[in-house]
Design a protein around this nucleic acid. Structure first.
Length: 751
DNA sequence: CTATCCATATTTTTT
DNA sequence: ATATGGATAG
């Protein structure tokens, strides 16, 4: 047998070797679909069916792309893969195409376009509403924003939408029109545009489409159930000349409807490609029988689905443990305590077999788990939330760079024109806005016009012209200087560093450190020979999961971020009505089914042991409210659970004599953790937060709970002191370990 | 024009 | 509980 097929089951082998024509691989959770894609690519290369540059593989995140590429490289000797194997996300691929060909349109858009992220988009929508005199209360920007995005993904433009007497529809259409005009004036594309314009480009210029059709002889699409209409169109356009298309996905794991993903793409694949062969991978290699049985039972409650039941030869495994905690803090404490206990029992095992994940529905839940981890000194990595590239100072610095590359980037302009404050206030900006919208030019051009006319008052004139000369001076550097030097000049000459220095707060210090880290990243990009353009593209398109540290033994993330990942130990937290399923989803039966698929995804992340937790009370908008158990809990087979009753489980809070926190809740039948028979003291009141772990201070006087500053990572909190090593949690960056003597640390005052 | 205070909404999920 | 935005004062 061919060595690349070794260790694959018959269906997987078939999926790897059926290389001719369209192929649909319905791959259940944990059925080794990534493995199939990887081996398929390796097989194509090995058999000489394609050279690397003739293969295009599309994954859901850049991280997955990198990993997949690496795995192919491991399977195929370098001699067989001269040329670049293209594995990327749809968005990254489209940026590549557009950077090459967008000029063909001739109009306002050029290949120097800027990418507007969700944040920029939101600001723009707000500005448009304001300009149109529409009330934000009546038409929430977020709602308008998603309406515009939905319309775009349906293929609508402001012109195809008829004027409506419904004030809401009317507001949407008018905002949509202005929004598109402003984007065009700024030579900016939002995330949706990246896909839409690529489709339009390939349609309008058949020679370009032909080029790509000739180049890519094999197309592989992962997570096909989450493709949206423009992505589908793109796939269509790339398979005009040949249909060596392999799509892999699981309809039961479709969880991105809010992003316009259309599950029909995968359900109707055989209709779209009549020649298609279909292979189903129904054997699960990941989870225990118990976990899989639960997953199957849950997903069976969805009506709109094709029946598919996964089987496994794995062990039966432990029952799924369900725990009700009195409140969310106790829930987090319990989870962290269990992780510690579980990992201790497995100290002798390889690290990969001791990894744990805490999954939750909303990012807001992450904080509690972070805090619990810190209290217990458990190192963790947080995925998502406010990632590095979402920090204000990082976005500010990048906005300077964006403006240097594209002066018409209005979002960048607005972001930094008065940051740091240089005397350009509301009045001046209003004049600027008026001029820009009257003449339909960018804010930068409007500024130039205003300055040239000399119609501005003295103070505004000085302020604006100093800004313009700052940018011109920096612009002169763009060609010659390295990225790192350019960035350094930006933060220095703009006065950004001075502003931070003047603030003198810890917060400002930490921001400064973040900027230094960005400069380090720029220096690394310099070493890779990356252009400023590539650096900014990457910053706009990185997903939070892309930054995930694989080695972390504990990962906190939303279920959405966990798609495609697996862990021996998984906790699904917050199993409460209105949280999971989320209140906004529970009203619509279709959305409820999507929530259930989300739950299915969460359950199937677990390999060995699964915990489901609920908090009996949870703070919502600062107010404690009682919760109801999630309806999903009722959908699990009772005999797969460690407890079956959910109502009325009320555990007392236990606290250990040495001040450590113990889980405040436990499954029925387990004795509370207590060393002596003393009456249980009440838990610290909210507000006076928990005492940190009472580790002995080391000889430099660093204690758990101290706030410290590190030269590179900024301000953090010590979470563990042991064996001459310090674990320090840096907000948003996870926990790093240092050797006490060597670490460049400064102790800071307690908050 | 900037800084500060107070009211208000805010929580799905992400390329 | 916290972030944002508007109003007010300096």
């Amino acid at each position: 047998m061919h060595p690349l097929l070794d260790g694959l089951n018959p269906e997987q082998r078939l999926a790897v070797t059926t290389t001719d024509g369209p192929l649909l691989v319905i791959a259940g959770a944990g059925s080794g679909k990534t493995r199939v894609i990887v081996h398929r690519m390796a097989y194509l290369l090995d058999q000489g069916l394609a050279r690397p540059e003739q293969i295009l593989a599309v994954t859901f995140t850049n991280k997955a792309a990198l990993e997949m590429k690496e795995r192919v490289h491991q399977l195929v000797p370098p001699t067989r893969r001269r040329g670049e194997l293209l594995v990327s996300t749809f968005h990254s691929f489209c940026v590549r195409v557009l950077r090459r060909h967008l000029d063909r349109f001739g109009g306002t858009y050029t290949r120097d376009f800027t990418i507007y992220d969700t944040d920029d988009q939101g600001r723009l929508v707000k500005a448009c509403l304001k300009e149109l005199g529409l009330d934000e209360k009546q038409f929430p920007p977020r709602m308008i924003q998603s309406a515009i995005s939905a319309a775009k993904n349906r293929g609508d433009t402001p012109d195809t939408l008829p004027p409506s007497s419904d004030p809401k529809r009317d507001a949407i259409v008018r905002t949509f029109r202005l929004y598109e005009a402003r984007l065009a004036a700024a030579n900016a594309l939002d995330f949706d545009d990246l896909l839409l314009l690529t489709v339009r480009l390939l349609r309008r210029f058949p020679d370009v489409a032909d080029d790509y059709n000739d180049r890519f002889r094999y197309l592989l699409i992962d997570e096909y159930q989450d493709t949206n209409p423009p992505q589908f169109n793109l796939v269509r356009l790339l398979t005009q000349r040949q249909q060596n298309l392999c799509v892999v996905g699981d309809p039961d794991q479709s969880i991105y409807k809010f992003r316009a993903a259309d599950i029909r793409n995968i359900l109707d694949f055989e209709r779209h490609y009549p020649q298609a062969k279909t292979i189903t991978l129904a054997r699960n290699y990941r989870s225990t029988k118990t976990i899989l049985r639960a997953a199957n039972a849950v997903i069976r409650h969805n009506r709109a689905r094709r029946e598919k039941s996964l089987t496994t030869q794995n062990a039966t495994g432990e029952p799924i443990r369900c725990v009700v905690a009195p409140d969310a803090e106790a829930e987090a404490d319990f989870v962290v305590g269990e992780i510690i206990r579980w990992q201790r029992q497995r100290e002798h095992l390889p690290e990969a077999d001791t990894r744990a994940a805490v999954l939750y529905r909303t990012n807001a839940q992450s904080r509690l788990f972070e805090e619990a981890c810190r209290r217990r000194g458990l190192p963790y990595v947080l995925v998502g939330g406010f990632s590095f590239y979402q920090r204000a100072e990082i976005k500010d610095a990048l906005a300077y760079l964006r403006l240097l590359l594209n002066p018409h980037d209005d979002a960048a302009f607005d972001r930094i024109v008065n940051v740091p404050a240089r005397g350009i206030g509301k009045a001046t900006l209003d004049i600027l806005t008026a001029r820009a919208s009257q003449t339909g030019v960018s804010r930068w051009t409007a500024t130039e016009h205003l300055l040239a006319e000399g119609s501005l008052g003295g103070r505004a004139l000085t302020a604006l012209s100093s800004f313009v000369s700052l940018m011109r001076g920096l612009q002169a550097m763009v060609e010659g200087a390295t990225l790192a030097d350019l960035l350094q000049a930006v933060v220095k000459r703009s006065g950004y560093l001075d502003m931070l220095a003047q603030e003198g707060t810890l917060e400002a210090e930490s921001r400064k450190q973040n900027l230094e880290e960005l400069i380090t990243a720029a220096a690394e990009a310099d070493e890779r020979g990356e252009s400023l353009r590539a650096f900014l593209d990457q910053a706009a398109l990185v997903a939070d999961t892309d930054l995930l540290v694989e080695q972390a033994r504990v990962t906190l993330m939303t279920i959405h971020s966990a798609k495609g990942l697996e862990f021996p130990l998984v906790f699904i937290a917050g199993l409460e009505e209105d949280l999971f399923p989320h209140a906004r989803a529970a009203v619509d039966p279709e959305e409820l089914e999507e929530e259930r698929r989300l739950f299915y995804v969460a359950v199937t992340r677990a390999k060995q042991q699964l915990y489901l937790t609920q908090a009996e009370r949870r703070r919502v908008y600062g107010e404690e409210k009682p919760t109801d158990p999630s309806r999903f809990l009722d959908e699990l087979p009772e005999d797969a659970l460690a407890i079956s009753a959910w109502a009325g489980v009320r555990a007392q809070t236990a606290s250990a004599p040495d001040g450590r926190f113990e889980p405040a809740s436990r499954p029925i039948g387990e004795t509370p953790w207590r060393r002596d028979g003393s009456p249980e003291p009440r838990r610290a009141r909210p507000g006076s937060s928990a005492r940190p772990m009472a580790d002995a201070p080391d000889r430099q006087g660093f204690k758990v709970g101290d706030r410290v500053e590190h030269a590179t990572f900024g301000v953090g909190q010590i979470v563990r002191v042991a064996d001459g090593k310090l674990d320090i949690a840096f907000p948003g960056k996870g926990i790093k370990r240092f050797v006490t003597e060597a670490a460049p640390l400064t102790k800071l005052a307690r908050r």
